[in-house]
Structures are given as C-alpha cells and as structure tokens.
Design a protein around this nucleic acid. Structure first.
Length: 267
DNA sequence: TCTCTAATAT
DNA sequence: CATATTAGAG
C-alpha cells in the first residue's frame, strides 16, 4: 500500500510547468563552451566577429527599444586576448517560477541532497549553472533562517509582516521541514531519486523536462540547436487590459544586461 | 580533483 | 538589494 511512493512523483510532475511555458527559459544561456565551439571554427584565425548575443525578441505589444548589444570587449588594438574563454553571461534573474522550481527541487530532494549540483540537475533548467544555484541557495538558506527566528517571536499585535517576506520567497511554498531545526531527525523520507546523479538513464523525468525543445513532431535537431529553437511567449489579454505588468524578457539595468529566464507567469 | 559553503565583490 | 565571484575547507 505504498501509494505515496507512486504518487509523489505524479504530483511532482503536475507541478511542473508545461513545455510551452518552459521553453523560453533561456535564450542567451548557451554554455560558453558551446559558444566557443560555434564561434571559433578555425582556431588558427581568431577573428570571430560574429559574436552573437541572442537577444530575446520580446514580442510584446509594445516595441521594445532594448535591442542593444553591449558586450563589446574592445581591445586597445593589439591585445591578443581570448575573451571566448572568459565569456560572461548576463545576470540571472530569479523569477518566481524559476524559484519555485528551485524550491520544489530542494523540497523533494531533502536537505541532505539539497546541494547545488543536485538541485541544478533536478531542475534541469538549461543554462542554469551550479554557481547560479549555489548563490541562490545561499540566499534561500538565509531566508529560511530569518523566518525561523521570526516564527516564534509572535508579537501579538505586531502588524509587522515579515519584511523578509518581500517578494520572491514569499511566493513559493516553503516546505515545513525546512523551517524547523529538525533536531534529532535530520533524515527525511526520500524514496529514491530516479534520475540519479550518474548515468542511470531513467527516461521518465529527464524526458519530461527536456522535451520542451521538440513539438509533437518527432523531428530531431542537433542537440545544440534544439535548445534555442522556438520562442512563443503568449501573453494574450483575455479581454480587458487591466494593465498587466508585461515584463520584458530582457531588461537592461544600468547598462548591465540581465537575463530573465521566464516570461511573466503566475504561480 | 571536485564540490560545498561562507564571505566578499559588483 | 540581488547575483556573481572568490576563498577556504572537506
């Protein structure tokens, strides 16, 4: 009678964003290595002027004049550098959706396995690096710690809603086990991780996640190209324009390029 | 060697 | 403030 064992997974699947929602995860998030592979077809003549920063085309109703390329690493003229190996990606913006995936991953992994690498793998978000997760995980832990402290300090008439509850973290359900110290029992029930960190190819999960690249058409492309294939951001107002905050996929902040993984969505 | 975490920098 | 990057430890 271990229904849970078979159910926990189903639930997990349901919570996953649909392929349509997922695809626009990352446009510019191509692995530097990949970029290199494409940018330098001929190592002998290092002059790849075709450095392409795939600017996510926002098909919002309003024309966005954010078509600026800025990664102009100009060499004083003579400096023979290899910027390709030091490619810097735009700042990752943790949108609620992305964070939710993060939290879900952490929740389902359990504290013990909730380490950057595992989380990253479970999330299976293309372009997401271990560093990204690590950095965010750090903040997340901070948030949890903060919340713990506030938990038991119940000011009766304290209207002070947790200032920590600012935005992001507040929008995702925080697993209870994370809030408690869990003294004496740091062990969390975890049936098993189907994807395993190693080669155990268990189709189920991975396919679900990565499939957003190909439609119902069983047409396969090169693994590299398939990532940046389509883009369909459909944010059609049902009827009334209630001034929905249409957030651009890429916003330039202070001349710094930021990369939004998800379009605007809801929880 | 690789990975995690804390601290620090942008 | 949010992320990135670095440093040190395991």
């Amino acid at each position: 009678m271990r229904e849970e064992d078979s159910n926990w997974f189903a639930k997990w699947e349901e919570e996953l964003p649909k392929p349509e929602e997922l695809m626009s995860l990352s446009q510019t998030l191509i692995t530097p290595d990949l970029a290199i592979a494409f940018d330098i077809p001929n190592p002998t003549s290092p002059n790849p002027q075709s450095k392409q920063q795939q600017t996510p085309h926002v098909q919002s109703s309003q024309p966005n004049s954010s078509a600026e390329f800025e990664s102009t690493e100009l060499n004083g003229g003579g400096g023979g550098d290899e910027p390709a190996r030091t490619l810097k990606r735009p700042r990752l913006v943790w949108t609620p959706q992305l964070h939710k995936r993060f939290v879900d991953a952490v929740a389902h992994l359990g504290i013990k396995n909730a380490v950057p690498k595992t989380i990253m793998q479970l999330m299976s978000v293309d372009g997401l690096t271990r560093e990204n997760v690590a950095s965010h995980l750090q903040k997340y832990r901070l948030y949890l710690k903060r919340m713990q402290g506030l938990s038991n300090s119940g000011s009766v008439s304290g209207a002070g809603v947790d200032p920590a509850m600012d935005n992001l973290f507040a929008s995702s359900p925080v697993p209870a086990h994370f809030l408690h110290p869990g003294r004496g029992n740091s062990d969390h029930f975890m049936p098993f991780v189907p994807m395993g960190v190693v080669v155990g190819h268990h189709p189920q999960v991975q396919q679900q996640y990565r499939q957003f690249g190909s439609p119902a058409n069983g047409h396969f492309e090169h693994p590299f190209l398939s990532r940046q294939s389509q883009q369909q951001v459909q944010r059609m107002g049902t009827s009334v324009h209630n001034g929905s905050p249409d957030v651009d996929s890429a916003t330039a902040v202070n001349g710094r390029k930021v990369l939004t993984l998800f379009p605007t969505g809801e929880d």
